[in-house]
Design a protein around this nucleic acid. Structure first.
Length: 452
DNA sequence: GCATGATCATGC
DNA sequence: GCATGATCATGC
Protein backbone atom coordinates (compact mmCIF):
# COMPACT_ATOMS: atom_id res chain seq x y z
CA UNK A 1 0.00 0.00 0.00
CA UNK A 2 1.23 3.47 -0.77
CA UNK A 3 0.09 6.45 1.20
CA UNK A 4 0.99 9.95 0.23
CA UNK A 5 1.81 12.88 2.44
CA UNK A 6 1.43 16.60 1.90
CA UNK A 7 3.84 16.89 -0.96
CA UNK A 8 3.01 13.54 -2.50
CA UNK A 9 5.86 11.65 -0.92
CA UNK A 10 5.28 8.12 0.25
CA UNK A 11 4.45 7.90 3.94
CA UNK A 12 6.47 5.62 6.15
CA UNK A 13 3.37 4.28 7.86
CA UNK A 14 -0.19 3.19 7.16
CA UNK A 15 -2.43 5.98 8.50
CA UNK A 16 -5.38 3.62 8.91
CA UNK A 17 -3.48 1.18 11.14
CA UNK A 18 -2.72 2.18 14.76
CA UNK A 19 -0.01 -0.47 15.05
CA UNK A 20 1.76 0.82 11.97
CA UNK A 21 1.57 4.38 13.30
CA UNK A 22 3.00 3.25 16.63
CA UNK A 23 5.87 1.35 15.04
CA UNK A 24 6.74 4.33 12.91
CA UNK A 25 6.61 6.62 15.97
CA UNK A 26 8.78 4.24 18.02
CA UNK A 27 11.62 4.74 15.57
CA UNK A 28 11.95 8.21 17.06
CA UNK A 29 12.82 6.86 20.51
CA UNK A 30 16.26 8.02 21.50
CA UNK A 31 16.42 10.42 18.57
CA UNK A 32 15.66 14.00 17.71
CA UNK A 33 13.56 15.47 14.93
CA UNK A 34 16.70 17.00 13.48
CA UNK A 35 18.20 13.52 13.09
CA UNK A 36 15.05 11.88 11.78
CA UNK A 37 13.61 14.49 9.42
CA UNK A 38 14.89 16.97 6.87
CA UNK A 39 13.63 19.89 8.91
CA UNK A 40 16.34 22.53 9.17
CA UNK A 41 14.56 24.94 11.38
CA UNK A 42 11.24 25.28 13.11
CA UNK A 43 8.73 26.93 10.80
CA UNK A 44 7.59 29.43 13.40
CA UNK A 45 11.05 30.69 14.16
CA UNK A 46 10.11 31.81 17.65
CA UNK A 47 9.94 28.69 19.75
CA UNK A 48 6.31 28.88 20.65
CA UNK A 49 4.42 26.42 22.75
CA UNK A 50 3.54 23.45 20.61
CA UNK A 51 6.28 23.92 18.07
CA UNK A 52 7.70 20.45 18.80
CA UNK A 53 4.30 18.85 18.19
CA UNK A 54 3.72 20.87 15.06
CA UNK A 55 7.14 20.02 13.66
CA UNK A 56 6.53 16.37 14.33
CA UNK A 57 3.22 16.37 12.48
CA UNK A 58 4.60 18.31 9.58
CA UNK A 59 8.06 16.85 9.11
CA UNK A 60 7.84 13.36 10.57
CA UNK A 61 4.28 12.24 9.97
CA UNK A 62 3.92 14.41 6.87
CA UNK A 63 0.53 15.91 7.47
CA UNK A 64 -0.52 19.49 7.93
CA UNK A 65 -1.17 20.44 11.56
CA UNK A 66 -4.86 20.96 12.15
CA UNK A 67 -6.98 22.07 15.03
CA UNK A 68 -10.19 20.52 13.80
CA UNK A 69 -12.12 18.18 16.05
CA UNK A 70 -11.19 15.22 13.85
CA UNK A 71 -8.54 12.91 15.35
CA UNK A 72 -5.05 13.58 14.02
CA UNK A 73 -4.98 10.13 12.41
CA UNK A 74 -8.62 10.14 11.39
CA UNK A 75 -8.72 6.76 9.71
CA UNK A 76 -7.12 5.03 12.69
CA UNK A 77 -9.04 7.09 15.22
CA UNK A 78 -5.80 7.98 16.97
CA UNK A 79 -5.00 11.34 18.54
CA UNK A 80 -1.36 12.46 18.54
CA UNK A 81 -0.18 14.10 21.75
CA UNK A 82 3.37 15.19 22.35
CA UNK A 83 4.35 16.01 25.89
CA UNK A 84 7.56 17.15 27.61
CA UNK A 85 9.33 15.68 30.62
CA UNK A 86 12.11 17.42 32.47
CA UNK A 87 14.90 16.48 34.84
CA UNK A 88 14.57 17.46 38.47
CA UNK A 89 17.00 16.95 41.32
CA UNK A 90 18.39 13.44 41.93
CA UNK A 91 17.93 12.37 38.31
CA UNK A 92 14.16 12.15 38.47
CA UNK A 93 12.14 12.70 35.33
CA UNK A 94 8.79 14.39 35.76
CA UNK A 95 6.11 15.70 33.43
CA UNK A 96 6.93 19.30 32.65
CA UNK A 97 3.32 20.27 32.20
CA UNK A 98 -0.27 19.11 32.13
CA UNK A 99 -1.56 17.36 29.02
CA UNK A 100 -4.39 19.38 27.52
CA UNK A 101 -7.02 17.26 25.78
CA UNK A 102 -9.71 19.61 24.49
CA UNK A 103 -11.57 22.82 25.19
CA UNK A 104 -14.65 22.61 27.38
CA UNK A 105 -17.81 23.81 25.70
CA UNK A 106 -19.90 24.87 28.70
CA UNK A 107 -23.10 24.94 26.64
CA UNK A 108 -22.71 21.35 25.37
CA UNK A 109 -20.98 19.61 28.24
CA UNK A 110 -23.99 19.84 30.56
CA UNK A 111 -25.90 17.54 28.20
CA UNK A 112 -23.16 14.93 28.00
CA UNK A 113 -22.51 11.82 30.04
CA UNK A 114 -18.95 10.96 30.93
CA UNK A 115 -18.88 7.77 28.90
CA UNK A 116 -20.05 9.44 25.69
CA UNK A 117 -18.43 12.82 26.31
CA UNK A 118 -16.37 14.77 23.86
CA UNK A 119 -13.51 14.46 26.33
CA UNK A 120 -13.60 10.65 26.32
CA UNK A 121 -13.73 10.65 22.55
CA UNK A 122 -10.48 12.61 22.48
CA UNK A 123 -8.82 10.73 25.33
CA UNK A 124 -9.70 7.22 24.29
CA UNK A 125 -6.87 6.47 21.85
CA UNK A 126 -3.79 8.58 22.19
CA UNK A 127 -0.41 8.21 20.57
CA UNK A 128 1.65 9.65 23.38
CA UNK A 129 5.07 10.89 22.34
CA UNK A 130 7.17 11.93 25.31
CA UNK A 131 10.25 14.05 24.81
CA UNK A 132 12.94 15.48 27.02
CA UNK A 133 12.57 19.22 27.38
CA UNK A 134 15.69 21.27 27.79
CA UNK A 135 15.83 24.91 28.61
CA UNK A 136 16.90 27.09 25.69
CA UNK A 137 17.25 24.11 23.32
CA UNK A 138 15.80 24.14 19.83
CA UNK A 139 12.75 21.85 19.78
CA UNK A 140 14.31 20.02 16.84
CA UNK A 141 16.99 18.85 19.27
CA UNK A 142 14.71 17.52 21.99
CA UNK A 143 15.29 13.80 22.43
CA UNK A 144 12.23 11.60 22.12
CA UNK A 145 11.97 9.44 25.24
CA UNK A 146 9.19 7.09 24.18
CA UNK A 147 6.18 6.63 21.95
CA UNK A 148 3.18 4.65 23.17
CA UNK A 149 -0.41 3.99 22.28
CA UNK A 150 -2.09 5.02 25.49
CA UNK A 151 -5.58 4.97 26.91
CA UNK A 152 -6.79 5.80 30.41
CA UNK A 153 -6.02 2.78 32.61
CA UNK A 154 -9.14 1.05 33.82
CA UNK A 155 -8.24 1.54 37.47
CA UNK A 156 -8.06 5.30 36.96
CA UNK A 157 -11.42 5.64 35.21
CA UNK A 158 -13.55 5.94 38.37
CA UNK A 159 -11.46 8.84 39.70
CA UNK A 160 -11.36 10.54 36.32
CA UNK A 161 -15.09 10.14 35.94
CA UNK A 162 -15.53 11.68 39.39
CA UNK A 163 -13.26 14.56 38.39
CA UNK A 164 -15.22 15.09 35.17
CA UNK A 165 -18.51 15.13 37.06
CA UNK A 166 -17.21 17.52 39.71
CA UNK A 167 -16.47 20.05 36.98
CA UNK A 168 -19.63 19.45 34.94
CA UNK A 169 -21.82 19.63 38.04
CA UNK A 170 -20.43 23.07 38.77
CA UNK A 171 -21.48 24.16 35.28
CA UNK A 172 -24.90 22.56 35.81
CA UNK A 173 -25.24 24.47 39.07
CA UNK A 174 -24.54 27.70 37.20
CA UNK A 175 -21.10 28.20 38.71
CA UNK A 176 -18.67 27.70 35.84
CA UNK A 177 -16.96 30.90 37.03
CA UNK A 178 -16.02 29.14 40.30
CA UNK A 179 -14.27 26.16 38.74
CA UNK A 180 -10.74 25.67 40.01
CA UNK A 181 -7.97 23.31 39.04
CA UNK A 182 -7.75 22.31 42.68
CA UNK A 183 -11.29 20.85 42.66
CA UNK A 184 -10.08 17.58 41.23
CA UNK A 185 -7.40 14.88 41.39
CA UNK A 186 -6.23 13.58 38.01
CA UNK A 187 -8.30 15.45 35.44
CA UNK A 188 -8.66 19.18 35.76
CA UNK A 189 -10.40 22.03 34.04
CA UNK A 190 -7.47 24.33 33.41
CA UNK A 191 -7.82 27.91 32.26
CA UNK A 192 -6.99 28.85 28.70
CA UNK A 193 -6.03 32.41 27.91
CA UNK A 194 -6.67 33.15 31.56
CA UNK A 195 -4.82 36.43 31.57
CA UNK A 196 -6.90 37.94 28.82
CA UNK A 197 -10.35 39.33 29.38
CA UNK A 198 -11.73 36.48 27.29
CA UNK A 199 -14.90 35.05 28.86
CA UNK A 200 -17.48 32.49 27.76
CA UNK A 201 -21.19 32.03 28.25
CA UNK A 202 -22.42 29.28 30.53
CA UNK A 203 -25.85 27.64 30.20
CA UNK A 204 -27.22 27.90 33.75
CA UNK A 205 -26.17 31.40 34.72
CA UNK A 206 -25.57 34.84 33.18
CA UNK A 207 -22.16 35.16 34.82
CA UNK A 208 -19.41 34.87 32.22
CA UNK A 209 -16.72 32.27 32.95
CA UNK A 210 -13.09 31.85 31.99
CA UNK A 211 -12.48 29.55 29.03
CA UNK A 212 -11.20 26.19 30.25
CA UNK A 213 -9.91 22.94 28.80
CA UNK A 214 -9.82 19.35 30.00
CA UNK A 215 -6.30 18.37 30.97
CA UNK A 216 -4.54 15.60 32.82
CA UNK A 217 -2.64 17.19 35.68
CA UNK A 218 1.13 17.24 35.50
CA UNK A 219 1.36 15.05 38.60
CA UNK A 220 -0.89 12.49 36.97
CA UNK A 221 1.15 12.60 33.78
CA UNK A 222 4.32 12.04 35.81
CA UNK A 223 2.83 8.88 37.27
CA UNK A 224 1.61 7.72 33.85
CA UNK A 225 4.94 8.37 32.20
CA UNK A 226 6.96 6.78 34.96
CA UNK A 227 4.65 3.78 34.76
CA UNK A 228 5.26 3.52 31.03
CA UNK A 229 8.99 3.90 31.61
CA UNK A 230 9.33 1.10 34.11
CA UNK A 231 6.48 -1.01 32.85
CA UNK A 232 8.64 -4.10 33.19
CA UNK A 233 9.41 -3.77 36.88
CA UNK A 234 5.74 -3.37 37.85
CA UNK A 235 6.62 -1.94 41.26
CA UNK A 236 4.29 0.04 43.49
CA UNK A 237 1.49 -0.50 45.94
CA UNK A 238 -2.09 0.23 45.05
CA UNK A 239 -4.63 1.21 47.66
CA UNK A 240 -7.51 0.06 45.52
CA UNK A 241 -8.07 -3.44 44.40
CA UNK A 242 -8.73 -3.77 40.70
CA UNK A 243 -12.33 -3.19 39.73
CA UNK A 244 -13.09 -1.56 43.04
CA UNK A 245 -14.50 1.90 42.83
CA UNK A 246 -11.88 4.41 43.80
CA UNK A 247 -12.88 7.35 45.80
CA UNK A 248 -9.61 8.46 47.23
CA UNK A 249 -10.89 10.46 50.14
CA UNK A 250 -13.49 7.84 50.99
CA UNK A 251 -10.90 5.12 50.85
CA UNK A 252 -8.46 7.05 52.97
CA UNK A 253 -11.08 8.05 55.51
CA UNK A 254 -12.20 4.45 55.79
CA UNK A 255 -8.68 3.53 56.81
CA UNK A 256 -8.39 6.28 59.39
CA UNK A 257 -11.83 6.13 60.97
CA UNK A 258 -11.15 3.23 63.38
CA UNK A 259 -8.35 5.30 64.91
CA UNK A 260 -10.19 8.60 65.39
CA UNK A 261 -10.08 9.65 69.02
CA UNK A 262 -6.84 7.82 69.83
CA UNK A 263 -3.87 9.77 71.13
CA UNK A 264 -0.50 9.92 69.39
CA UNK A 265 1.01 7.83 72.19
CA UNK A 266 -1.66 5.15 71.90
CA UNK A 267 -1.23 4.97 68.15
CA UNK A 268 2.56 4.85 68.35
CA UNK A 269 2.31 2.05 70.89
CA UNK A 270 -0.32 0.23 68.83
CA UNK A 271 1.93 0.23 65.79
CA UNK A 272 5.15 -0.33 67.71
CA UNK A 273 6.67 3.00 66.71
CA UNK A 274 9.38 4.39 68.92
CA UNK A 275 9.49 7.95 70.16
CA UNK A 276 10.80 9.96 67.23
CA UNK A 277 10.31 13.26 65.52
CA UNK A 278 8.51 11.83 62.51
CA UNK A 279 6.34 9.59 64.63
CA UNK A 280 3.10 10.92 63.17
CA UNK A 281 4.24 10.56 59.58
CA UNK A 282 5.01 6.93 60.33
CA UNK A 283 1.65 6.40 62.01
CA UNK A 284 -0.03 7.78 58.89
CA UNK A 285 1.72 5.28 56.66
CA UNK A 286 0.84 2.43 58.95
CA UNK A 287 -2.82 3.40 59.03
CA UNK A 288 -2.87 3.59 55.26
CA UNK A 289 -1.76 -0.01 55.42
CA UNK A 290 1.35 0.30 53.34
CA UNK A 291 4.93 -0.49 54.07
CA UNK A 292 6.71 2.51 55.50
CA UNK A 293 9.08 2.90 52.61
CA UNK A 294 6.74 2.13 49.75
CA UNK A 295 4.96 4.76 47.79
CA UNK A 296 1.23 4.77 47.51
CA UNK A 297 0.35 4.67 43.87
CA UNK A 298 -2.75 6.81 44.00
CA UNK A 299 -0.98 9.40 46.11
CA UNK A 300 1.79 9.56 43.55
CA UNK A 301 -0.59 10.01 40.68
CA UNK A 302 -2.49 12.75 42.43
CA UNK A 303 0.75 14.15 43.86
CA UNK A 304 -0.64 14.00 47.38
CA UNK A 305 1.68 14.46 50.32
CA UNK A 306 0.56 13.56 53.83
CA UNK A 307 1.09 16.29 56.44
CA UNK A 308 0.38 16.13 60.13
CA UNK A 309 -1.62 19.05 61.52
CA UNK A 310 -1.89 19.56 65.25
CA UNK A 311 -4.70 21.84 66.29
CA UNK A 312 -4.64 23.41 69.70
CA UNK A 313 -7.68 23.66 71.91
CA UNK A 314 -8.21 27.26 70.79
CA UNK A 315 -8.56 26.12 67.18
CA UNK A 316 -5.18 27.35 66.01
CA UNK A 317 -2.46 25.23 64.51
CA UNK A 318 0.36 24.45 66.90
CA UNK A 319 2.99 25.22 64.26
CA UNK A 320 3.34 26.70 60.80
CA UNK A 321 4.25 24.36 57.97
CA UNK A 322 7.65 24.62 56.32
CA UNK A 323 8.91 23.95 52.81
CA UNK A 324 12.46 23.08 51.74
CA UNK A 325 14.97 25.91 52.05
CA UNK A 326 15.64 28.07 49.02
CA UNK A 327 18.77 29.30 47.28
CA UNK A 328 19.06 33.12 47.41
CA UNK A 329 20.76 33.37 44.02
CA UNK A 330 18.18 31.14 42.37
CA UNK A 331 15.40 33.12 44.01
CA UNK A 332 16.71 36.32 42.49
CA UNK A 333 16.77 34.82 39.00
CA UNK A 334 13.55 32.81 39.01
CA UNK A 335 10.00 34.04 38.48
CA UNK A 336 7.39 32.74 40.89
CA UNK A 337 5.71 30.70 38.18
CA UNK A 338 8.94 28.78 37.51
CA UNK A 339 9.96 28.39 41.14
CA UNK A 340 10.12 25.30 43.34
CA UNK A 341 7.86 27.11 45.78
CA UNK A 342 5.20 27.39 43.09
CA UNK A 343 5.46 23.64 42.42
CA UNK A 344 5.15 22.91 46.10
CA UNK A 345 2.01 25.02 46.35
CA UNK A 346 0.38 23.14 43.47
CA UNK A 347 0.71 19.93 45.46
CA UNK A 348 -2.34 18.35 46.94
CA UNK A 349 -1.90 17.44 50.59
CA UNK A 350 -3.55 14.93 52.85
CA UNK A 351 -3.93 16.69 56.19
CA UNK A 352 -3.98 14.19 59.03
CA UNK A 353 -5.52 16.21 61.81
CA UNK A 354 -4.87 15.80 65.51
CA UNK A 355 -6.74 17.89 68.05
CA UNK A 356 -5.61 18.75 71.55
CA UNK A 357 -7.48 16.92 74.29
CA UNK A 358 -10.17 19.00 76.05
CA UNK A 359 -8.50 18.65 79.43
CA UNK A 360 -5.00 17.26 79.14
CA UNK A 361 -2.51 19.82 77.86
CA UNK A 362 -0.26 18.66 75.08
CA UNK A 363 -2.19 15.45 74.43
CA UNK A 364 -3.31 15.24 70.82
CA UNK A 365 -5.95 12.87 69.46
CA UNK A 366 -6.38 11.82 65.83
CA UNK A 367 -9.53 13.67 64.76
CA UNK A 368 -9.95 13.84 60.99
CA UNK A 369 -8.44 13.66 57.53
CA UNK A 370 -8.94 15.98 54.58
CA UNK A 371 -7.39 16.80 51.24
CA UNK A 372 -6.13 20.30 50.72
CA UNK A 373 -4.61 22.30 47.95
CA UNK A 374 -4.00 26.01 47.92
CA UNK A 375 -6.95 27.69 46.16
CA UNK A 376 -6.02 29.56 43.00
CA UNK A 377 -6.84 32.93 44.50
CA UNK A 378 -4.37 32.43 47.32
CA UNK A 379 -1.60 31.67 44.86
CA UNK A 380 -1.59 35.40 44.09
CA UNK A 381 -1.02 36.15 47.76
CA UNK A 382 1.78 33.57 47.89
CA UNK A 383 3.30 35.24 44.83
CA UNK A 384 3.32 38.54 46.71
CA UNK A 385 5.31 36.90 49.50
CA UNK A 386 7.72 35.38 46.99
CA UNK A 387 8.18 38.64 45.09
CA UNK A 388 8.71 40.60 48.28
CA UNK A 389 11.45 38.22 49.42
CA UNK A 390 12.93 38.31 45.95
CA UNK A 391 13.07 42.09 46.14
CA UNK A 392 14.81 41.91 49.53
CA UNK A 393 17.46 39.64 48.00
CA UNK A 394 17.86 41.97 45.02
CA UNK A 395 18.58 44.81 47.38
CA UNK A 396 21.19 42.77 49.24
CA UNK A 397 18.96 42.20 52.26
CA UNK A 398 18.33 38.46 52.30
CA UNK A 399 18.48 38.73 56.09
CA UNK A 400 15.11 40.54 56.02
CA UNK A 401 12.26 38.02 55.97
CA UNK A 402 8.63 38.43 54.95
CA UNK A 403 6.74 38.31 58.23
CA UNK A 404 3.56 36.37 58.73
CA UNK A 405 1.87 39.62 59.64
CA UNK A 406 2.73 41.00 56.21
CA UNK A 407 1.13 38.23 54.19
CA UNK A 408 -2.17 36.43 54.66
CA UNK A 409 -0.89 33.01 53.52
CA UNK A 410 2.82 32.58 53.97
CA UNK A 411 6.02 33.99 55.40
CA UNK A 412 9.76 33.47 55.40
CA UNK A 413 11.77 32.15 58.35
CA UNK A 414 15.20 30.67 59.05
CA UNK A 415 15.53 26.92 58.60
CA UNK A 416 19.08 25.75 59.09
CA UNK A 417 21.11 23.62 61.47
CA UNK A 418 22.04 26.68 63.49
CA UNK A 419 23.12 30.27 63.06
CA UNK A 420 26.27 29.17 61.23
CA UNK A 421 24.31 27.24 58.61
CA UNK A 422 24.30 29.98 55.97
CA UNK A 423 23.91 30.26 52.21
CA UNK A 424 25.44 32.86 49.89
CA UNK A 425 23.29 35.70 48.66
CA UNK A 426 23.97 37.46 45.37
CA UNK A 427 24.68 40.85 46.90
CA UNK A 428 26.20 40.75 50.37
CA UNK A 429 27.36 38.45 53.14
CA UNK A 430 26.00 34.90 53.44
CA UNK A 431 22.74 34.66 55.35
CA UNK A 432 21.25 31.89 57.47
CA UNK A 433 19.30 29.29 55.47
CA UNK A 434 15.63 30.18 55.11
CA UNK A 435 12.49 28.73 53.63
CA UNK A 436 8.86 29.61 52.96
CA UNK A 437 6.27 28.66 55.57
CA UNK A 438 2.51 28.48 55.41
CA UNK A 439 1.02 30.67 58.14
CA UNK A 440 -0.51 28.75 61.02
CA UNK A 441 -3.45 31.16 61.07
CA UNK A 442 -4.11 30.76 57.37
CA UNK A 443 -4.05 26.97 57.56
CA UNK A 444 -6.27 27.00 60.66
CA UNK A 445 -8.86 28.92 58.67
CA UNK A 446 -8.54 26.64 55.65
CA UNK A 447 -9.08 23.56 57.82
CA UNK A 448 -12.02 25.11 59.64
CA UNK A 449 -13.61 26.04 56.31
CA UNK A 450 -13.30 22.49 55.03
CA UNK A 451 -14.47 20.67 58.13
CA UNK A 452 -17.30 22.81 59.48
C1' DG B 1 26.59 14.91 55.51
C1' DC B 2 22.57 17.04 54.72
C1' DA B 3 17.63 17.94 53.98
C1' DT B 4 13.61 18.06 56.20
C1' DG B 5 9.96 17.39 59.54
C1' DA B 6 9.41 18.80 64.01
C1' DT B 7 10.01 21.46 67.99
C1' DC B 8 12.07 24.83 71.21
C1' DA B 9 13.03 29.60 73.09
C1' DT B 10 12.63 34.34 73.47
C1' DG B 11 10.54 38.64 73.49
C1' DC B 12 6.70 41.41 72.72
C1' DG C 1 -0.51 33.71 73.24
C1' DC C 2 1.70 34.62 69.24
C1' DA C 3 5.50 35.76 65.94
C1' DT C 4 9.76 34.66 64.72
C1' DG C 5 14.44 33.26 65.24
C1' DA C 6 16.76 29.19 66.14
C1' DT C 7 17.87 24.41 66.74
C1' DC C 8 17.16 19.34 67.12
C1' DA C 9 17.35 14.77 65.24
C1' DT C 10 15.91 11.12 62.05
C1' DG C 11 16.57 8.99 57.91
C1' DC C 12 18.15 9.03 53.43
Amino acid sequence: MEEHGMDGRILGYDPSDPQSILEYAERLEGHTLREMTDAKKIADSKRRKGSFGNAMEEYYFDYAPNSSSEPDFAQAGVELKTTPMKHVRKNDLVAKERLVISMIDYMDVVNETFETSHFMEKARDILLVTYLWEKDADPLDYEVIMADLWTIPEEDLPQIKRDWETVVNKVRAGHAEDISGSDTMYLEACTKAATSENRRKQPCSDVPAKPRAWAFKASYMTAIEQGLLDRKTGAGTSLARKGQDINLLGLVRERFEPYFGRTEEELAQHFGISKSLNRCARITKRILGVDENSKIEEFEKANIKPKTMRIKRNGRLKESVSFPYFDYRKLEMTDFEDSDFHDELLQKYLFVIYREDEREDGVYRLADVMFWQMPDKDLDEAKRCYDQMRQNVREGHAEISVKSTENRCCHVRPHGQNGKDTRPQPHGRPVVKKCFWLNAGYLSDEIAKALF
